[in-house]
């Protein structure tokens, strides 16, 4: 009986947080500065995520070129790492090289949207007179772990870069960096939403 009551309270509380977050996001979406903060945060994080995961690179001397994988449909869901996917096309655009993997774009896009939403609400919590706005910007740091999640041929890119020997525990952690980031960003979003009086 007590457990049921506790469960109901938790459920009500979750619904309340979700509703509060939804209203805060709707409020941000209704304001031009909120939309701008969201777009800037989303775009900036997506670019950084793509560079960190090797999907986007800057190269001197690249012109315009498009190369498609053979039989791309069969590779649509093929993974190259725990949360990275097989690219289906390579696009060179005058100095920039883009490896297009739909799965990576979805993962990066979801994380980037969460970062953008965090940034928009953080901005509004500061800009809006009734908001508390203390320490809310720190939530965007939750996006950092996902930037380390890229794997090269045989291991995590960041370990290769810094020359650290991987332990099995560390390797297991790398597989969870993206989900951890997503959950932390969602938690941060709910927290910041609570700081805005809508």
């Amino acid at each position: 009986m007590t457990e049921t009551a506790g469960g109901q309270r938790a459920s009500r509380s979750a619904r309340r947080v979700l509703e509060r977050t939804r209203r805060a996001l709707a409020f941000a979406a209704g304001r031009r500065d909120g939309r701008l903060a969201f777009a800037a945060g989303t775009l900036a994080y997506l670019l950084v995520y793509m560079v960190a995961s090797g999907s986007l690179a800057v190269r001197r001397g690249l012109g315009f070129d498009v190369v498609l994988a053979r039989d791309p449909l069969s590779k649509l869901l093929a993974r190259t790492g725990p949360v990275s996917f097989e690219p289906l096309a390579l696009v060179d655009v005058y100095g920039a090289r883009l490896l297009l993997a739909p799965g990576d774009l979805v993962v990066g896009g979801v994380l980037a949207a969460l970062v953008g939403a965090n940034l928009a609400l953080t901005y509004l919590s500061v800009a809006q007179p009734k908001a508390c706005g203390i320490d809310t910007g720190a939530g965007v740091l939750a996006a950092a772990p996902a930037l380390l999640s890229g794997t090269a041929c045989c291991g995590p890119v960041v370990l290769i870069a810094v020359g650290v020997t991987a332990t099995s525990g560390l390797l297991a952690l790398f597989a969870w960096l993206v989900p951890i980031s997503a959950l932390a960003l969602a938690g941060s979003l709910a927290y910041v939403a609570g700081k805005i009086a809508v």
Partner: peptide, 30 residues
Amino acid sequence: TGSVRDYGRDPYGSYNPKTRYYSSDSFLFS
């Protein structure tokens, strides 16, 4: 090759001259 990759970028370093993983005294796995 059937796949698209950023050929020309070696994720481990370079052989001309040897750099990063190819020259360091560290291992990726013990």
